[in-house]
Design a protein around this nucleic acid. Sequence first.
DNA 1: GAGTTTGAAACT
DNA 2: CAGTTTCAAACTC
Length: 807
Amino acid sequence: MDTPEKNQIGTPISEFEDSPVFNYINSLSPIKPVKAANTAQIFPPLSFASPPSSVFTSPHINSQRESRVSRRLSDISRPEFSHSENEDNTSEGVSDAVQLSDLFAEQLGCHSPGRSSGEITSEPPCQNLKSELPKTLSYDYSSLDGDMVPYNVVKTNNVPEMAGTPASPIQFVQDVSEERHHSFESEIELRGICRIEQNKETAGCDWENLISNATDLLISDSSINNEHYEGQDYETVDAGVISFISAVLQLPQDDANDLKKTESDDPVGSCKLDKMEEPVTQPGVGELKVTDQASAILPSTLLDKLVVSDLGVEVDDKGEKCIRSGCKSGSQQQQRSIRRRCLVFDMAGAHKKKLLGDPSGSSMIKSQSDRKDASNEKQLVLIKPGNGYSSSILPGIGLHLNALATTSKDCKVVQHQTLASGRQLIMMPSSVSSFSSLTSDQKPSDKSSTLTSLERDLVPHDNETQVMEDVSQTPAFGVGEEFNHSCPKRKRRRLEHNGESEGCKRCSCKKSKCLKLYCECFAAGLYCIEPCLCQDCFNKPIHEDKVLETRKQIESRNPLAFAPKVISSTNSVPEFGDESNNTPASARHKRGCNCKKSNCLKKYCECFQAGVGCSINCRCKECRNSFGGKDGVEEADIERNETEACETSALDISFRNNEKDKCEEESPDHVTPITPSSKIGRPSVQLPFTFSGKPTRSSSFAVGSSLQSCTSQKLETSDFLCRQPKFRKLLQMIPEDETPEILVDDCSPVGGVKSASPNCKRVSPPHHRFGSSPAWRRGRKLILRSIPSFPSPNPPNKSSDLPGKLQ
DNA sequence: GAGTTTGAAACT
DNA sequence: CAGTTTCAAACTC
């Protein structure tokens, strides 16, 4: 059947028919000639579009694609597909690669609409597909292009994922598979699809619309999607797109009708994307199917992300409305995209604010520090590339991925990527406009996609929880500089109670203009945002100059003023409920508290607020800090610091701490797993760099904490494992010999202290992180270095200065 | 929501 | 460096 038709298709042009070459080609494979011609026209340009940075992506993508495709095909009973086969196309071999089939169908139909009378009747759709599908498909098809392709694909996938397709993906897949089976029974998906299309012109139309719309939407939203999903979605994209297309073609009339309905509902193609992204607005069955399929392919990963995204959406009031209402206008779309960013942001956590504020490289550093924190936060790592520009990001990501891959920290890597992508966009919302570097973004996604599988397994709940918390802050950033003080205290309190604001707090400054450390936002290096209740606020991007100037002044007085108050070197084992939970177990307050009446049992106490135990640095009276009183600990800490036995064994320390532990009052959350770790960290808690008075008793703090994290990383243990106190201990047990290196490699970068503290402050590690520069090893000391969260006029100077001082 | 308490930040 | 003031968050009612 196919062969003759294909031949015809291939020979639309009478001229060629006569040519011997043409005949020869036909003899080899009818489709091939046509394809070649088409591909030549379509692919090249598309492929060019793909960014160069695909180095990483391509391999990963391919592998993933194959695996997923194979999965999807498994329904069809085809274990694998190879590109070569497709190209060769025994016409039917194409079936193996759904992509190819789609491409062929499109190309054939498009280029020679008249020709492919037999198989491909969906010419009209093909035309649209030409422009759009080919892009995605072609990219997918091409090795390098993964970047571009994934991007589109990701979006599509994302959409479905986000949508949280009501129908179980599996079911959907089955349905589709059944339909497909018919076609496949005939042998080729493509053929089957074509047949279906023939039978159902309407479906074809829908398909066209869907595809075109989807592509448009994807393109337009690429920025958004990229942020969130780049990594994750990327994987699904391939399979998802393919499956999507095939599904569309094969869709039963019912589905087609649904699609039509959706289309009619959403005349604006752009809206579709949003809908696709969000479950409520699901545009069409086809999309749903796609999502379903994708989900089937990448169930856990996507689902996880979807969950997160959903949560974020829910959290974000505005976002919710926009999303759920569906896209009614282009502007709304943008908003949605922004919201999405915000959501993504949420993922990133409080850090996002800083990142936004930091056009400078500081953001990069921060991300790195986060990475160290790897325990809970996976995401930030990739941000480095960053100055916010996706393009720049890509390279960094690539490196990061590579490093991770090498290190075999797949889990972390994946997560980081995802977040990173999102952050990037978020970070540079304004600049982001450019999502121009979609390709770049896509790349990261691709990379991330490679690891997504790992992510699923490894991603702990913590991430999600954190994300949720962060959400509150994100919106402002995503929007960029839009700040509203409109939020009533009620709202704020409400949010706080909900725990949303815990991660990052909003200020309500009245006299300080938010340009003093009184202002929590300012102190955290963040711009005030909508939820803030501040008056006469100057801590806004609009007043960037003032902010920077003031910041400078403050830093001149105290270089560490903007450094996180709480320094945690280790993997934090965030716990649920309290913001303190976010604080790393080994975290310590940099400067220590000076409580007199609160007994360090109330949030007046910064140590308590941060969920960390008091340390030697504290001057508190009658300390009863449930996280760890300074009284008992102090001497021990001092001894330890002096001896620098930090490395000896965290266990010993932990035991001491346990003995000394006063944590009776503490909530169970802290008590169990975290408590020990925190205690462990405690002895070393003192900040090496405290400017105030008690300088360096310890490098120990950094060492100890870093040790934990580092060791864990080196061991390649997954984050969740690291989180496990037991594992930590085991890791800590590791001999000293290893520790130094560990610290050097991972720890230092990550080691950047990250504080889950309400302020969301974090110390950024040295820029070199990625580079395995030895300097990085010095990281311990560098950890405390304060990195301007705001875009500092002269960030480099500061950074350079600080290290010198510290060291 | 207003008022009080508290402790950090800023100032002298 | 110590003491005081200012400030805003945390807390209480």
